[in-house]
Each structure stands twice: as C-alpha cells, then as structure tokens.
C-alpha cells in the first residue's frame, strides 16, 4: 500500500504576517471501506487512512479523524493563520501503521 500513496498539498509560498491562508490537501489512497465484497463474496478488509493532522511550527492547525465514509483519495480544504515564516507539516496515518508526511515552507512577504 505504501508504494502508491502520494500526498499533494497546495500552500501559498508567501503570506503577510497574521494572514489567513487556504490550504488544500489530497492524498492518493484507495480507502477500502471494509464493506465491499470481492467476486467470491468475501469481504475485502478495511484499509483506510484514519487520521490526518496539519501543524505549523509545532502548533496544531487541524486534526481530522477519518472513517470509512471518506471518499477514495481523501481531500481536505481548510484555513490556517500564518503568524511567522515557517513550515507546515502534514501527516496522514494509515490503518496498517504507515505514516505519510510532507511539508511546505512559507515566507513572510
């Protein structure tokens, strides 16, 4: 599973101090709900990302608990305050224990 998971995030490169910016995140993941059955009628085991967090310089922006009802390739859009220049870190936690992360730097202009 871990091989074909690719996180993508969209964060502006620059912001004014204290500005509220919009962040969009997408991660490729099949989000198998555990409800579907294969051709033989066996239930396909659940395999989803169950938690997503976004932090800026160690301060939390948002934390989301995901359930099987979140669509394939989970997408989130939210807003964050940028008090200073720094780095956003995005972390996704998979059911199988894998952790996917990515980060984006932002400067104050």
């Amino acid at each position: 599973m871990a091989s074909d998971v690719k996180p993508r995030v969209k964060v502006p490169k620059q912001a004014a101090a204290g500005e509220v910016i919009t962040i969009k995140t997408l991660i490729s993941h099949k989000m198998e709900s555990g409800q579907r059955k294969d051709k033989e009628g066996n239930a396909i085991p659940r395999s989803i990302i169950n938690r997503f967090t976004c932090d800026f310089n160690g301060e939390n922006v948002i934390e989301v608990t995901l359930e099987p009802a979140i669509s394939t390739n989970p997408y989130f859009e939210f807003e964050a305050i940028v008090p200073e220049a720094g780095e956003f870190t995005f972390t996704w936690y998979d059911d199988d224990g894998s952790v996917y992360d990515t980060s984006k730097k932002i400067t104050i202009g």
């Binding site: 509220v20 910016i21 919009t22 932090d55 800026f56 301060e59 939390n60 922006v61 948002i62 934390e63 989301v64 608990t65 995901l66 359930e67 009802a69 979140i70 669509s71 989970p74 997408y75 989130f76 859009e77 939210f78 807003e79 964050a80 305050i81 008090p83």
Partner: peptide
C-alpha cells in the same frame, strides 16, 4: 464520517472534504 478538531492556528472553524 469524520471528526474535525481545530487547533490554535486554524484560520477559521471550517473545513471541506468529500
């Protein structure tokens, strides 16, 4: 479906998803 928890640096108490 999901639970959103907003932290200290959340710019607004809003989020969207699919």
């Amino acid at each position: 479906v999901a639970t959103f928890k907003f932290g200290k640096l959340a710019g607004s108490r809003a989020a969207s998803t699919r």
